[in-house]
Computed example of a mutant assay.
Amino acid sequence: MRDHDMAAAAREPRKKSEDGFWDTIKVIIQALLIAFAVRMFLYQPFNIPSGSMYPTLKVGDYLFVSKLSYGYSKYSFNFGLNLFGTELFKFGPIPIDGRFVFPAEPKRGDVAVFKLPRDNETDYIKRVIGLPGDHVQMREGVLFINGVAVPKQRIADFVDVKGEGGGRPIPQYVETLPNGVTYNVLDFTPNGAADNTEEYVVPPDHYFMMGDNRDNSLDSRFGQNAPGGGVGFVPYENFVGRADIIFFSIEPDAAFWQIWKWPTSIRWLRFFNLVN
Rank of each mutant, 00 (worst) to 15 (best):
M1E: 12
M1V: 09
D3V: 03
D3T: 05
A9G: 07
T24E: 15
L32I: 14
L33T: 06
I34G: 11
V38E: 11
V38D: 07
R39H: 12
F41G: 00
F46A: 05
I48C: 00
P49C: 09
S50Q: 10
S52H: 10
S52G: 06
Y54N: 14
P55L: 06
P55Q: 08
K58A: 15
S66T: 04
G71T: 05
Y72R: 01
S73L: 04
F77A: 10
F84Y: 14
L88A: 04
K90R: 15
P95S: 10
R99N: 12
F100N: 15
V101I: 15
V101K: 07
P103L: 07
V111N: 02
V111M: 07
D123F: 04
Y124W: 13
K126I: 08
P132G: 09
E140R: 14
G141S: 09
V142F: 07
L143R: 01
Q153L: 14
R154G: 06
D160K: 14
E164G: 05
G165V: 06
G165E: 02
Y183P: 02
Y183K: 11
V185P: 01
F188D: 13
P190R: 05
N191H: 14
D195N: 11
D205S: 10
D212S: 13
S217A: 09
S220D: 10
A226N: 03
A226K: 03
G228W: 06
G228I: 04
V234E: 13
V240W: 00
R242D: 14
I245S: 01
F248I: 02
F248A: 09
S249W: 00
S249H: 00
D253C: 06
I259Y: 12
W262N: 05
R267T: 10
R270H: 13
R270I: 01
F272P: 04
L274D: 11
V275W: 01
N276W: 04
